[in-house]
Design a protein around this nucleic acid. Structure first.
Length: 471
RNA sequence: GUCCCCAUCGUCUAGCCUGGCCUAGGACAUUGCCCUUUCAAGGCAGUAACACGGGUUCAAAUCCCGUUGGGGACACCA
């Protein structure tokens, strides 16, 4: 049994796309399950579109979702000699030939063919021309087989058959000496001893182009697996117009990496009715034959629900840690510095079933920093009325009698007052809520008091009374 | 146009390979009710799908063929 070696091979032409993350994820899961090797390879042979910032974005994104690689990142532009020498091997073996057709000519001929209703493939003009003294700007073409069948046993889609009569003589070395995608992948996948090439569905038709190159080079052909695409709500390929597609955009919107992983893996893979998976479970349970064969529509609602689940069930201290940078961004840098990690975790517990994202959570958590409750004008106007002042004063007097805060005793005392006054719970609770949090919606009152502590609770109640007296 | 892939609730999916247990299950969303000091969360209930047409079979969501519909690929992009 040979060791499993898989790779994720993005091209650095933008941010890391969530579709890319999903592809990486399936590869990573398989590698971890099989105790194989996961390789990160940057396909940057298109020097006009590749950027260093994109490479950084890929690395940053991979790290954020916790997909660690065992080898790499390799950059194809650092491996040019390898592609050239293998291309020369094909030339010497008579399996490749120089093509002197100009790019513009090819373009024009393709258009003519298309207009006549023919397949827009290369017409093979230079195939038998035997160009032995190529000009500097000649391109090298692979002599693709013209008959026979290529049968691929796809890990996900099963047996797929392609007819070689439709095969094209691909350019493998451009006139500028750079290899093309279909050639550099083959050389790299072979040299890196990749055992399973798992990539997006959009590469399916590249497979019959690549297999003959593996064979011509004398390399073992790996297994292939083609993941279905992710679609937008209108069932077209997911793009910016459907919303955020960059993985880091989701970080910024307050999503947890574990939620992203869980969502992305369930989009196209299932394990019975299970919805929530730990990473360990994912590694254990992952299997190719439960990967869906059809494309899936990206559903932001379900992602949001999952994120809320993870906010509720993740260790509060970890959620707090992820929350801190967002609090700082929201202008609470000093306030955050003044409190303990434990208190922050307590704060997370207080609001965690109300916040669906960390960005939400920032809003929920704001009222609990600082001495004074930031009163919402409308709330204050409605509940902190002169008529309420005496009642609130009675409550404060009761609370002041307790030397320290106790949820149980304070709650009992509160209810006794409500009973004695013959009013409804809400009649007292809402004004108190506004005094304590400045808002009409908050977590349970006594949980709020607990987080605030005795002193601040009393302080905010007294401030509330002042406001109420003023009207 | 040519080639390839795909087809279960609005969406993600279970079931399909190895036909009967399917009166088609779960989840998100949605609707109603319950809980309740507010807002959530939670609980319960409801609406909602095998694309269509032929076969094969005692029996088809499951196997076969066709139609339709969707997606992808056809570059000196990856």
């Amino acid at each position: 049994m040979s060791e499993v070696r898989v790779r994720f091979a993005p091209s650095p032409t933008g941010f890391l796309h969530i579709g890319g993350v999903r592809t990486a994820l399936f590869n990573w899961l398989f590698a971890r399950q099989q105790q194989g090797t996961f390789i990160l390879r940057i396909e940057d042979t298109d020097q006009s579109r590749s950027t260093d910032e994109s490479i950084q974005a890929i690395i940053e994104g991979m790290k954020w979702v916790g997909l660690d690689w065992d080898e790499g990142p390799f950059r194809q532009t650092e491996r040019m000699e390898l592609y050239r020498s293998h291309a020369m091997k094909l030339l010497e073996a008579g399996q490749a030939y120089w093509c002197v057709c100009k790019a513009e000519e090819l373009e024009a001929r393709r258009k003519v063919a298309e207009a006549k209703g023919f397949s827009p493939r290369y017409d093979g003009r230079c195939r038998d021309a035997q160009v032995t003294n190529p000009p500097a700007d000649a391109a090298l073409r692979f002599k693709a087989p013209q008959e026979g069948l290529i049968v691929v046993d796809d890990l996900i889609k099963g047996t797929i058959t392609f007819d070689n009569s439709a095969a094209d003589d691909l350019i493998i070395l451009r006139s500028n000496g750079y290899p093309t995608y279909n050639f550099s992948v083959v050389v790299d996948d072979a040299l890196m001893r990749i055992t399973h090439v798992v990539r997006g569905d959009d590469h399916l038709t590249n497979t019959p182009r690549q297999i003959p190159i593996f064979e011509a080079l004398g390399f073992a052909v790996p297994r292939f697996g083609h993941l279905p695409m992710i679609l937008g709500s209108d069932k077209t390929r997911l793009s910016k117009r459907h919303g955020a597609t960059s993985i880091m955009a989701y970080k910024d919107m307050g999503y947890l990496p574990e939620a992203m992983v869980n969502y992305l893996v369930r989009l196209g893979w299932s394990h019975g009715d299970q919805e929530l998976f730990t990473r360990k479970e994912l590694i254990e349970k992952f299997s190719w034959n439960h990967v869906q064969t059809s494309a899936a529509v990206f559903n932001p609602d379900k992602l949001l629900w999952l994120n809320a689940e993870y906010i509720k069930t993740s260790p509060p201290s970890e959620v707090a840690k992820a929350l801190v940078p967002l609090l700082e961004q929201a202008g609470l840098k000093q306030e955050v510095a003044a409190v303990s990690d434990e208190w922050l975790a307590q704060l997370v517990v207080l609001v965690k079933e109300r916040a669906k994202t960390l960005v939400d959570m920032v809003e929920w958590v704001k009222p609990y920093f600082g001495q004074v409750a930031p009163l919402e004008e409308e709330a204050a106007k409605k509940f902190l009325t002169p008529a309420m002042a005496p009642l609130l004063q009675k409550l404060v007097t009761r609370f002041e009698a307790f030397p320290s805060f106790s949820k149980q005793t304070w709650e009992e005392s509160f209810k006794q007052l409500v009973g004695a006054e013959g009013i409804k719970m809400g009649a007292l609770a809402q004004p108190v809520r506004v005094a304590l949090t400045g808002r009409t919606a908050s977590p349970g009152l006594f949980e709020v008091m607990e987080v605030l502590g005795r002193d601040r609770t009393l302080f905010r109640l007294r401030t509330g009374i002042e406001r109420a007296s003023r009207g």
